[in-house]
């Protein structure tokens, strides 16, 4: 049957387009404009060529060194986050009951950290880690462990990592659980007939069936950790020293703290480009996996 073509739907998309124009496109264009100009204030700009980018990409300058260090730091952070949260999330999902009243109770408990606003999560962990009144800091200090998240970089990293795991593993677990629930019982029955063990079932049935949701989980968690700002900004403020200054923390310091528009603009553009590229690679891999499976 021939489908009627009706382009009226475009009008319904219009409000969103206008919104995106003012919330994303205009600011992005402004940032691009700032990135090639310098100003002496009073909205008087003059062309500065690629000088900001030269400054940013040269690791021997102040901004360049900070950017390179923050990039490495952030990639490492995202990598460790994925390394911990994915296996942990899948493991948790395997333990969630499949039937009865326990399902709802477990899911709500697991989802609780996801419902807490980012800055509240930061505040909770900031207090939790304090040696004088915080449970974690107090207990660790009294156990004789040298823990101080405001002075020792290792403690600061551990705190932020554990906080992120606490905050987001639930999401991975929920995604993985949804994936597990969608596996038909027939697969398990067939495995039982074949005498497959628990590991074999996981390796040959559950993991392949989870592939799609896991790619989504990787994408979401990578982006979340690569753009992380609020929690570390409250817990450590990027310190001690620069040891937990991730890209967005550094960017805010440069663009808003020092009102260094040119450097901030150049940095946010390169940052944006890296994020966009990684997003696109993930997206392409994801859709290709789908396509190959459907064929």
């Amino acid at each position: 049957m021939e489908k009627a073509i009706n382009n009226r739907a475009w009008f319904f998309v219009l409000p969103v387009l206008v919104f995106v124009l003012f919330s994303s496109l205009v600011p992005l264009m402004t940032v691009i404009n700032y990135s090639v100009q310098d100003t002496m204030g009073q909205n008087n700009f003059f062309f500065n060529g690629i000088a900001w980018f030269q400054n940013l990409l040269d690791p021997t300058t102040d901004i360049g060194g900070r950017f390179a260090a923050a990039l490495v730091r952030n990639l490492l952070f995202s990598f460790v986050v994925l390394l911990i949260e994915l296996p942990l999330g899948v493991g948790a999902a395997l333990c969630i009951p499949r039937h009865g009243w326990k399902v709802g109770a477990t899911l709500v408990l697991i989802a609780l950290p996801l419902l807490i606003p980012y800055n509240v999560v930061g505040t909770i962990w900031q207090i939790f880690a304090r040696a004088d009144i915080g449970l974690l800091g107090y207990v660790l200090t009294h156990l004789g462990i040298a823990y101080n998240d405001t002075q020792d970089p290792t403690s600061a990293w551990a705190t932020i990592l554990v906080m992120d795991v606490w905050h987001w593993t639930g999401m991975v677990a929920l995604l993985a659980y949804a994936g597990l629930k969608s596996i038909p019982d027939a697969f398990y029955q067939a495995a039982r007939i074949d005498g497959a063990g628990r590991w074999s079932v996981f390796r040959n049935i559950e993991l392949p069936k989870l592939q799609k949701v896991l790619v989504i989980a990787v994408l979401l968690r990578f982006m979340g950790s690569f753009m992380i700002y609020t929690e570390p900004s409250i817990v450590t403020g990027g310190g001690p020293g620069e040891s937990t200054s991730f890209l967005s923390l550094d960017l805010v310091k440069i663009a808003l703290g020092q009102v260094d528009l040119g450097n901030g603009a150049a940095m946010s553009l390169v940052y944006n480009l890296i994020t966009l590229t990684i997003c696109w690679v993930f997206f392409t891999v994801m859709t290709q996996l789908d396509r190959r499976k459907d064929v």
Binding site: V26, M29, T30, I32, N33, Y34, Q37, N43
Partner: peptide
């Protein structure tokens, strides 16, 4: 539009 700091180079780029 002054706050958007327009200049010919980026205008040409967007065009």
């Amino acid at each position: 539009m002054a706050w958007m700091a327009w200049n010919w180079y980026t205008a040409a780029f967007f065009a």
